[in-house]
Every structure is written in C-alpha cells, then in structure tokens.
Amino acid sequence: MKIRRSFVSLFVIAAALVVTAASAQTLTVYSSGPGSLAKALVAGYQKAHPGSKIDLFASSTGKVMARLAAEQSNPHADVVILADWTAGLNLQQQGDVLPYRPAALLDTVRPELRASGDFVPLGGDMVSIVVNTDVTPKAQMPKDWFDLTGPSWKNEITMPDPTLSGTAADFVLTFVSRFGDKAWTFFQALKAEGTLWPGPNAAALNPVEVGSRRVVLAGVGHTALKAQKAGNALALIYPSSGTVLIPRPILILKSTKHAAEAKAFVDYAMSDAGQQLVAKALLIPARQDVAPNAVWKGFDSVPTIKVDWQKLASEHDSVMSRFRTTILGR
C-alpha cells in the first residue's frame, strides 16, 4: 500500500509540473552578454513595474540569433538585446523588427552611437588588443593588428569566435571591408600560427587572463576591463589603424503580442536608471548625460574606422560563412 501511495503522489507531482509549465508569461527578453546586465535590467524593470513577469534567455549573440531563427514560425521573444548592430539590421531586413526609435529617445543618444536602423542603441563597446603584460615582453607589445603575425606569436593568440560573439563579428566585417584581401591573408596567418577561437569573449579572455596565452585579438571592452579592474595584469591596446565603436541594439520583434510592455521595457533600459546599469556593466551608456565608468576615460579620442552599417549588414552572411569554413574549419 505504501508503495502504491508513493506512486500516486508521483503522478500528482507530474501533473503539477505540467500545470506549472503551461502557466502564462508576460514578456520574454532574449539578450546577448553581459548576462549580468540583462538580469539587472529585468530586475530593475520588475521593481519599477510591480507584478510584471519577465522570462530571460541570456547567451552569446550567435546563440540568440540562432534561437530567433529556429523560432521564426513560432516566435517567443518580445525584446531582443544584441551585441552588434549588424545583427539588429539583419533582423530588420528580414522584416522581424517592430520599428521603435522615438525621436525623444534618439535625442538623448551620443552622436557617435546614432547608427541608422529601426531601433535604438542600448550602449556601445569597442574591441581592442588585450595583452597580458606579465607574460608579454615589453619589446613585443603590439601597436597594430598586423603586428600580431610572425613566429614570436605562435600559439600565443586567442580571438573570440565571431560566429558566437557579436562584437567579434562586427570587427571581422569592418576589418574585411576596410582591408579586403589583406584582411583574409592576415586571418590565414593567424590560423597558421595556432590562434584559438575558443568561444565567446569570456572563453577567449580566460587563457590570456591566466597567462597561458599572451593576447586576445579583438577582445570586447567590458569583459577585459572587468578583468583588469579585478586586478589582472591586462592592457587594452587600441591599434593605430583604428578600431570599431559598436552600438548594441535593443529592439522589439514584430511578432510581439505585448508591444506596450515591450516599449515600456525599452524605455526603462534607456532611462537614467537603466543607463546607470549599462555604465555599471562597463559598457559605454547610450545616453550622453550618463557618464561611462572611469575605466573608459578618453575613449572618445581612440582612432576608429568609419563604418557603413547598412553595407556591413548586407555582407554579413557571405563574410561570416567564408570565415567559418576557411578560418574556423567548420
């Protein structure tokens, strides 16, 4: 009898599970890194809007975009936060974006982050060469991207995987568009000297942080700055031939059934409170009246490559596919 009773209770638990799984949800947010920022924004929004419920899926840009593509016929997300502007533009070109770019919001945005599109930037970030100064001889300090080839860099470089990291993808697109064949020769040389593409930014930074490799090529700013702030011997080098300042889009999907809440969420993210969270996550806040963290001091004097985002977005698929097959070998 005892046995049978426990079996019955198992069934009851299973039934409860099904009920829980079917319960309603309000807003679904998909976000690429930093996951801590997405969590903080969700928590802040819920505090400002008591009773609201938000489901969050936080991963790398490549995985968020894959999930959106897989769910195309049956979309779940309402709001999407991405790490690279071209990914946002690609969603827009597919007709998936509900335009939300009110002039009142745009007016608050730093001019250098006002890229064209049907959505606003949540913030921005810059890629650089991240060097572990403990294990890199002074004489070998790179000054430019192209300094990173040659025998002394064999097995010393990592780079975030651009199929996963949105910022690395926008870097590759910009780099190829600026340097053409020279860029592809450079990537081939990197591959030949044993460069690793281990995953998104955290995975690329880890070996350099602990010193088993010397340099992250095109490492994203906020991850490296966080590690630097924590006391790791890291230097961020902005190459003389220029880097990219990448706006990070926050957008609403056309398929949303909660447009009003979705807009309220974007408004919250762009409010002073939301932008303080962006600054705290060590991104450059979109609003000009919110100062970036002190670690970004002097970011506006860094040489950058001028970017035509629409053109880059149109080249996205072909460049990334070439990078995946010839450089990553997948």
């Binding site: 840009t61 995985k63 975009m65 894959a66 999930r67 593509a69 996963l164 698929d317």
Partner: peptide, 10 residues
Amino acid sequence: RATSVYPVRL
C-alpha cells in the same frame, strides 16, 4: 553548432 549558432543550418 549547426543548430545553436547563427546562421542555423537545420
């Protein structure tokens, strides 16, 4: 990777 990284290649 073919299912979880963009572009999805089912």
